[in-house]
Amino acid sequence: MSIKKIYLDYASTTPIAEEVKTDIKSVLDNDLFGNPSSLDHEYGSLVNELIESSRTDVAKLINADGDEIIWTSGATEANNLALMGFAEFKMKDRPLRIASSFIEHKSVIEPLMELKQKGHSVEFIAPNHDGYIDPDVISTTLDNGVDLLSCMHINNEVGSTNDIALIGSLCRDKGTVFHVDAAQSNGKLSLDVRENNIDLMSLSAHKVYGPKGVGALFVNHETVGRLKPLIFGGGQERGMRPGTLATHQIVGMASAFRLAKSSMQKDHIHLSKCRELFLESIKDIEGLKINGDPKNAYPGIISLCFPDLNADSLIFAMDDLAVSKGSACATDSDEPSHVLKSMGLSQAEINGTIRISFGRKTLHQDIERASSSVRAASEHLRLVSGETL
């Protein structure tokens, strides 16, 4: 199937890189179908070697040890395992005190709400108007005694970036376990779990040109060690995530992470140029504002706000572009974006926000067409509504 639209929704998912496809195909074509837990014969042992070498490759990207990587079905499961698994394993004679923020992905917020229902104390920190968490506010929160802090690195809706190194240092000083949702940043920004004092970190493959259906959770063996599993019925993944592993997907994730490690700097330069060109070409569009702080944002994500227009109408009018209103995991809900709401945007501003996100395959001519399309769509909608600014 051939789709003619220009794809500008890389924050939602990325196309599988050709190198990754080749590595996945190699697994499927070479009869590497054995169960990696069946070590009594070569079918199982050969696949187990692939799984373990892939584990090492993923670990290298974040300066972890291979045995600290737990395979999951994706970052959503990794977030759930990190939060629910930590709370269930660590709770002994008292409920835990947990802190997070209102800008988190639903796969963090909803497990925390479930833990609150179970009696744990959960506090959500409000971000500043640019969409990231003020470290001073975190420091004050930690002073009150916090067992676990969870926050994302790059926000998936506006691209705001939290200072993970500083937050990790604050957590380590206070003895607080630090969980990072790195689904949007792994392979895009440099992450070092040792230098950044990270105890738990959720990783995704499909956000970085790997396959869907696979992810991982980093579990620091020195500071956390064990988690209670979410599912039961096997001893795989050190008993923390039972189930037969999907070899071809895991090999694909490792391939994507190796590629990301080698191309991270080049990718960042390319995305920064895309952002610069796009913002320059749309800067004079009437009524347009950019959500977030342009100086503290990942270059691949831009949140555009037209307070006098409707996002659904804008997207429909830009029929040559594949863009979104925000998080792909919230498209089935009519509720306004909890991220934009927590940043203090009005209902009109939330309703008029769309997200543009660039990737490796974004061309400069795509930027030109996209800016022209945004301009034409906004002018057309104002014309048909009889409104001008």
Score class of each variant (00 low, 15 high):
Asp9Lys: 15
Thr13Lys: 13
Ile16Lys: 02
Glu18Lys: 13
Glu18Met: 03
Val20Leu: 09
Val27Trp: 00
Leu28Cys: 03
Phe33Cys: 09
Leu39Gly: 03
His41Phe: 11
His41Cys: 15
Glu42Gln: 12
Tyr43Pro: 11
Gly44Trp: 00
Ile51Tyr: 00
Ala59Asp: 08
Glu68Leu: 01
Ser73Trp: 05
Asn79Thr: 03
Ala82Asn: 12
Met84Thr: 10
Ala87Leu: 14
Asp93Cys: 02
Asp93Pro: 00
Arg97Ala: 10
Phe102Ile: 01
Lys106Gly: 09
Met113Ser: 05
Lys116Pro: 11
Val122Asn: 01
Val122Ile: 07
Phe124Cys: 02
Pro127Gly: 08
Asn128Leu: 13
Asp130Ala: 06
Tyr132Trp: 15
Ile138His: 04
Thr140Val: 07
Thr140Asn: 14
Thr141His: 03
Leu142Asp: 01
Leu142Lys: 04
Asp147Met: 04
Ser150Val: 15
His153Pro: 00
His153Gln: 07
Ile154Ser: 13
Val158Thr: 15
Gly159Ala: 11
Ile164Tyr: 09
Ala165Gly: 04
Leu166Ala: 10
Leu170Thr: 06
Thr176Phe: 12
Val177Arg: 15
Gln184Pro: 00
Gly187Asp: 14
Lys188Asp: 02
Leu189Tyr: 02
Leu191Ile: 15
Asn196Phe: 12
Asn197Met: 05
Leu203Trp: 04
Tyr209Val: 01
Gly210Tyr: 14
Gly213Phe: 10
Leu230Val: 07
Leu230Cys: 02
Gly235Leu: 11
Gly235Asp: 12
Arg238Thr: 03
Met240Ala: 09
Met240Pro: 10
Arg241Leu: 07
Thr244Glu: 08
Thr247Ser: 12
Val251Thr: 08
Met253Pro: 00
Ala254Glu: 03
Ala256His: 07
Lys261Trp: 00
Met264Trp: 09
His270Val: 06
Ser272Thr: 15
Arg275Asp: 10
Phe278Gln: 07
Leu279Trp: 10
Leu279Pro: 15
Ile282Phe: 14
Lys283Tyr: 10
Glu286Ala: 13
Gly287Phe: 13
Lys289Thr: 11
Lys289Glu: 10
Lys289Met: 10
Gly292Ala: 01
Lys295Ser: 09
Lys295Thr: 12
Pro299Ser: 09
Gly300Ser: 07
Ile302Gln: 14
Asn310Ile: 14
Ile315Met: 14
Phe316Val: 10
Phe316Trp: 07
Phe316Lys: 15
Asp319Ala: 01
Ala328Asn: 09
Ala328Leu: 07
Glu335Val: 07
Pro336Gln: 01
His338Lys: 10
Val339His: 05
Ser342Arg: 02
Ser342Asn: 06
Leu345Pro: 04
Arg355Tyr: 01
Lys361Ala: 04
Ile367Gly: 01
Ser371Ile: 13
Ser373Trp: 05
Val374Thr: 05
Ala376Tyr: 04
Val384His: 00
Gly386Ala: 11
Leu389Gly: 02
